Computed example of a mutant assay.
Amino acid sequence: MKSHQATAQRAAEAARTQDSAGVRLDKWLWAARFYKTRSVAGEAIEKGRVMVNDQLAKASRTVRVGDTLAVRQGDCPLARRIVVKGLSETRGPAPVAQQLYEETEESRAAIAAWTAARPYQADPAQSIEQGRPTKSDRRQLVAWQRWSVSLDDESDKG
């Protein structure tokens, strides 16, 4: 338990010292535990899944206290709206990471509504009635295409 408390204290001290300056966006997202690694955070930023103050950002962008982030994660089409409350370059325990940001009420409500409606939405996999055609199905398709082409050719001549 002491090592956990020491880690939490070090992370809190690092957050206090970083408040005046800024932290790279990919480091902050990793430290705040939005992504498991910095490289995954960088990929999400490159794909345009993270916006800072309603602008597309690069991984090297400096995040400051008070900035508003929009972060899309997983299969949810909605972005979480987050206000930065603290800065940290080190990844600490989850309770410390949760103190680095605050999610807006509108964002929480929108995601809760989407989560509640999700079971009633159509699943793309359910629209597939059959899988791949079998070998005999493919042969029938080829035979049908061969006959249909020849019938079309004869109707054009007459």
Rank of each mutant, 00 (worst) to 15 (best):
N53E: 12
D54N: 03
D123W: 06
G74P: 13
A122T: 13
S60M: 04
V84F: 08
A112K: 13
R33S: 07
A57V: 01
R24T: 01
R72Y: 00
Q121R: 15
I128E: 12
A97M: 07
S107L: 03
L78P: 04
A94D: 10
S107I: 04
D123M: 10
V83C: 08
E46D: 13
K58F: 01
Q98F: 00
G131F: 05
C76V: 15
A97I: 06
A41Q: 09
T68R: 15
P93C: 01
M51V: 07
E103M: 11
N53A: 09
V96K: 05
S88E: 01
S60P: 00
G48D: 05
S107Q: 08
E43G: 13
G42D: 02
A59S: 15
L100F: 09
V96D: 07
K47I: 02
E46V: 05
P133T: 12
G66E: 12
A21G: 15
I45A: 07
V65Q: 04
V65D: 01
T115C: 01
D26F: 10
E46G: 10
Q55F: 06
G92S: 12
Q73H: 12
R118F: 13
L78W: 00
Q98V: 00
G92P: 09
E43W: 01
L56G: 11
V23Y: 09
P133Q: 10
A21L: 13
S127M: 12
Y35I: 00
Q98I: 05
T104S: 14
I111T: 12
T68Y: 01
Y101D: 04
D26Q: 13
A32Y: 05
K58R: 15
K36G: 04
P133R: 09
Y120F: 14
A79H: 10
P95T: 10
Q73I: 15
G48M: 06
V63N: 07
W30T: 07
R80I: 06
Y120I: 02
S136N: 08
T115E: 15
V40M: 08
G86W: 02
R81N: 02
A59Y: 05
A31M: 03
A116T: 10
A116P: 01
L100Y: 10
A41N: 08
L87A: 01
L56F: 12
E129L: 14
Q99D: 14
I45M: 10
T68D: 06
G92F: 07
V65T: 08
E102L: 05
L29F: 09
G131C: 02
T104L: 07
L25P: 02
T37Q: 06
E103G: 07
Q98N: 06
R118D: 10
K47E: 13
S39K: 12
W114A: 09
G48A: 06
E106W: 03
P124E: 04
L78D: 00
I82Y: 11
A125T: 15
S127E: 13
G22M: 03
R72V: 14
Q55G: 06
R108E: 14
E46W: 01
E46T: 11
I111N: 12
A109Q: 15
V84I: 14
V65C: 04
R118M: 11
A32D: 04
S20I: 02
G22P: 02
R33I: 04
G42P: 02
S127I: 08
